[in-house]
């Protein structure tokens, strides 16, 4: 018998899909222990293939609690140990970005970075370099510092 008023089931807080050479995981709502555990299960069961990249989309995550953060750290640590792959966490919240920085630093993962847009995620995931985000950033800052100093010297010499 079909119920007269079907109660819609709540949206799945963890969705996993494949897009080309990417596993795309989308989380939503509050990142707590339940969502963290579901993420762990889904990632283990995901249809991984050699050379896959991982995009974890947190744009629909509104916040996290301590238990959720601990779950994400464990899951990410297991991923780094078992299936190291180039990955990006996409979020539009500074608080969540801080959590991702902590996880990357805590697991010393060279393949992962937080990103603020899909454009930035695409650029990072396409990149073949094995250099960590922290090292890439420092190298870039040093190169630019050199260019700026040169520009300053040129300006002084023409004055």
């Amino acid at each position: 018998m079909v119920p007269l008023f079907a109660v819609p089931s709540p949206p799945d807080p963890v969705r996993v899909a494949r897009s080309g050479d990417r596993i795309v995981v989308t989380l939503r709502g509050l990142l707590d222990s339940a969502v963290g555990a579901a993420l762990d299960d889904r990632l283990r069961a995901a249809p991984w293939e050699e050379g896959d990249r991982l995009l974890i989309d947190l744009r629909e995550v509104t916040d996290f609690n301590e238990a959720g953060a601990a779950c994400l750290l464990r899951t990410h640590g297991a991923l780094v140990a078992v299936r190291p792959c180039r990955s990006a966490y996409l979020t539009d919240r500074p608080r969540l970005r801080a959590l991702i920085f902590k996880i990357i630093h805590g697991t010393q993962d060279k393949n992962t970075r937080p990103v603020a847009s899909l454009t930035a995620a695409d650029a990072w995931l396409r990149e073949a370099s094995g250099q960590a985000f922290a090292d890439v950033s420092l190298d870039r800052a040093r190169t630019l510092l050199g260019r700026l100093q040169e520009r300053l010297r040129d300006r002084r010499s023409t004055q």
Binding site: G106, F133, S137, L138, L144, R151
Partner: peptide, 19 residues
């Protein structure tokens, strides 16, 4: 160039500072 340099420098440092 200045803004790119600042953004990159703190993308590096913030790994440690946030932790």
């Amino acid at each position: 160039e200045l803004l790119h340099a600042v953004a990159s420098a703190y993308d590096w440092l913030n790994h440690c500072t946030i932790y």
